[in-house]
Amino acid sequence: MEIRPEDLAKILAYVTVIIIGIIYLFPIFWAFLSAFKYEADIFNPAALIPTRLTLQNFFEPYFKPIFLQWIGNSFIVSAGATIIVILISVPAGHVLARARSKSYRLLSHILIFAYLFPSTFLIVGFTRLLGTLGLLNSYLGVILAYVAFNAPYVIYLVYSYMFAIPVELEEALLVDGYTKFDILKKLVFPLSFPVIVTGVLWTFMQSWNEVLYALVILNSPELMTAPIGMATLQPGESITPWGTLWAFSLVYSIPPLIVFYLLQQYYITGLMRGAIKAA
């Protein structure tokens, strides 16, 4: 029997997908399985598929109330930053897209630089500013950092989306006696719903994952966000309680995974709309 080149290409594609699946998905499965393994099995790679499973990692003495506190802290800073970012970005993106005057144009240029700028390179100046304002070791300090570094992208998203809404519609409403604030409430917010969802998803996930600023700003264990708190469990490699660490990682990973997979469509379309932060 002869193999046609099209079939060969198909077979090659399937083999490639399987190999990539093994490299990209199997490690995650293997690692998270540790959350349900006994300590002895975690440190024994021969027990790849364990014969026994346990939930004890979720009830270890390490799994203290402080764990839930860290998750809660992550929620507070991520939700806080997301709400502020959306509230300031939507009106700004709308006005900047419509404005003609020079000062507004200047602002949109600064916006692009702010959008490009990697946050790491501002860590010293930002920390010193928070020190002056007395905001070190506070939720607000971290929230302000996340607002500063995520707002430019969300404004940019709204800004570019505004060109899909006809200006004539807004002008007609103004003639009918609506105020610009009414337009924001009744037209801009509802119509830009898809990019707002993208912006929410983006800001929330970035804040949920962020390490450097949280690490520098937050010192008290009871204020730490989840990724920072986790690291305090990793003191030296021989005594790292990996079972507990993976149990905690699982709890920490579930909220963003749910949000991501529920809203995946918005994320992809946001991506199609142009360049996205791909660091």
Partner: peptide, 23 residues
């Protein structure tokens, strides 16, 4: 209205990005 719509963003840029940069 335009001024107040971009005011919070401008404050964020100036206070949280430009001031740290100068610092």
């Amino acid at each position: 209205y335009d001024f107040f719509a971009v005011l919070p963003t401008t404050l964020v840029f100036v206070v949280l990005l430009i001031v740290p940069l100068i610092t």
